[in-house]
Amino acid sequence: MVLIILFLCAYIVPSIVLNFLQITHIKSALKTKAILLDSLDYKKAGNYALENLMLDTIQKCVEFGLFVFWVVFGLSFFWQWLQEIGLNGAWHHIAFLLLLLLIPLLVTLPLSFYQTFSIDKRYGFCKQSVGLFFIDLLKTSLLSIILGGVIFYVLLWVMDSFSFWWLGGFVLMFGVVVVANAIYPTLIAPLFNKFTPLEDTELKSRIEELLDKVGFKSNGIFVMDASKRDGRLNAYFGGIGRTKRVVLFDTLLEKISKDGLLAILGHELGHFKHKDILKNLATTGVFLFALFFLAAHLPESFFAQASLPQESTTTLALIFLLSSVISFWFLPLVGYFSRKAEYRADAFGATLSSKQCLANALVRLINENKSFPSSHWLYICFYYSHPPLLERLRALDYEI
């Protein structure tokens, strides 16, 4: 019972309260004069945000129901059932942990489908077919099974082999995060999207000149076929070391000027200049360290409540279920430093183009992506990795 109360009071209730604070704020803002968007798009962006917030509230209720299921019945049931069907040893433990990954994916599938083909479709963002949606789901599931199975096997070996297993587990998982960041652009992302070298020679030359000015060495500038799934605009730098590459959404090339695109890339180069990627990895390391430290100090009563023996596999299962609580209260700290980094990146990006050019590009993005420009301060504290656009524009001396 303590586990359920902890999950409810420390995660579900606060997150739902934040959602309703944001809902109330947006409804109030919609009654005022439109800013940054024309009146029609302002209302559209607000309604889109409201629908997503209501859906997220439903999702939180589903998460709570699923957590209660695991603690009261599911964990002990699947632990015994896997043994009854003949899975023993490592296969039993890995299958048990993989079920914790895959069952929530299946339970929340209707909500994901509704988000994509009802909400996003109605607001003009969803471009993908139902077939592609399920192909993505299949690929994600297979990757989870293959990579998750290997990681769980090694992690359980570490936990069973060392006295300070939680420290070894932290080192292993932090290494996995670093490797994942390094291989994602070249091995993982191409499984879902097509990446082609940028063909616009003039734009490519201007981007390479911009990269050289900052000392950013990449293995290429690529265009991603984002439009086959979504109509929103974006660009990013992916990878670590020699795997670094510049990725431009094809939607971005279609709807923003070359000067605006270069201003956005200048902002991203600000993150590179200030080593924000490394800082983000360090922040992830702190979170993983805290997670494994807590895993090593779970009360025996938690295992008794879930009717499970206290061992390495069940410890991972419980900490996995409680990771939402821990990450939720970690968000304000992560968000605070992330928003500071965004201001620094804006300031640096403005030196590569101009404050006006970057501000115009940001306004263009919010118009195309239909992002509502106003939020409740407490919601920002927990969920915003970027400062509200109004504050970013003021920092760039943009007249609103």
Rank of each mutant, 00 (worst) to 15 (best):
L3K: 05
D41E: 15
V177F: 00
K127L: 07
V171E: 08
I277P: 05
F292W: 07
L261P: 11
A317Y: 07
L253T: 06
V171Y: 10
A49D: 08
G175K: 00
L278Q: 13
F152G: 01
I151H: 03
S371T: 14
Y343H: 10
A345V: 04
I264L: 06
F174G: 01
L167N: 02
G335M: 09
S205A: 15
S327C: 07
S39T: 09
Y379M: 12
N280C: 03
S163C: 05
T108L: 14
S118A: 12
T57N: 09
A180I: 02
I221F: 06
D225P: 07
L321N: 04
L210M: 12
R122I: 05
D56T: 14
D41H: 11
V2C: 11
A95M: 12
E199H: 13
W81G: 09
N219F: 06
G349F: 00
L142Y: 04
L316H: 00
F348T: 02
T251W: 12
A295C: 10
L253K: 04
M224N: 10
L18M: 01
R122H: 14
Q59W: 15
T315H: 14
E342Y: 01
W166Q: 03
V178C: 01
S374H: 10
F96K: 05
L137W: 14
G169N: 03
